[in-house]
């Protein structure tokens, strides 16, 4: 009788295991320029924090836009929108000239555009969105403000840059940022300390990573793994 009970308990545990695994909040990471392996490195750090994380290179915007709906964490490293000196920010570029944009007011970059403004309550579960791209936190009168729009749609925390960031320092910042949040720093502390981590790497200087801007609950930790509050 005891043996049967043990077997039954083991079966229950086995059945519950996939449910527990799939219950981990998802995190998607995208490298969309010569930025590898930042998405993979972020994935590893997020997995260590208990997120069900994945990474990809050169994804199409449609994929990222679609999976954003289920994400707790969204991380992009690639090009930001720069139409001209007076109209920059508001968009991030994916493969095949596809873009995720905050909004539009008459400018349609590339071949395919997907708008954060078109989400209803779809991304209200997002805990953190990180847009590592040139001017990703800059308000563009043509295409809006990515951080503001993401926050308007219910994300808890959103991070972008209001300056020119280049590939190598972007990689440096990303690696250190995710490592630091994994080791228990708040989003704000990790963002700030990661910029200093980059300062003394060659060539000496911040090279734009000091222009990070955070909207929302900047003093939050990413552990325990969870969705955003809605």
């Amino acid at each position: 009788m005891k043996r049967w009970l043990c077997m039954l308990a083991a079966l229950f545990l086995l059945a519950a295991l996939p449910a527990a695994v799939s219950a981990a909040p998802p995190a998607h990471n995208y490298d969309c320029s010569d930025t590898t392996p930042t998405a993979y490195d972020a994935q590893v750090d997020q997995a260590a924090m208990g997120y069900s994380s994945s990474s990809s290179m050169n994804a199409h915007a449609s994929t990222a836009y679609s999976t954003f709906r289920s994400d707790a964490i969204f991380f992009f490293n690639g090009h930001g929108l720069y139409y001209d000196d007076s109209h920059k920010g508001g968009g991030i570029k994916f493969s095949s000239e596809s873009w995720i944009l905050a909004d539009t007011d008459g400018h349609y970059p590339g071949n395919d555009q997907y708008y954060i403004a078109d989400y209803g309550t779809d991304i209200r579960d997002v805990l953190l969105a990180v847009y590592l791209a040139c001017y990703s936190s800059h308000d563009n009168q043509y295409n809006g403000d990515l951080l503001q729009q993401t926050m308007n749609k219910g994300a808890d925390i959103c991070l972008g840059f209001d300056g020119e960031v280049e590939v190598e320092n972007g990689k440096c910042w990303s690696g250190n940022f995710w490592d630091r949040v994994r080791n228990g720093e708040t989003v704000a502390s990790a963002a700030s300390n990661a910029k200093d981590d980059c300062y003394w790497h060659w060539p000496i200087g911040y090279w734009g990573v000091d222009t990070y801007e955070i909207s929302g609950s900047y003093n939050s930790y990413l552990t325990p793994a969870r969705y955003g509050i809605y």
Partner: peptide, 19 residues
């Protein structure tokens, strides 16, 4: 340590950092 900025193309800033 050189920074070189170019006119944007395809809505992306051109140039970057060269050491």
């Amino acid at each position: 340590v050189v920074t070189m900025k170019g006119e944007p193309e395809g809505d992306v800033l051109q140039g970057g950092l060269v050491v």
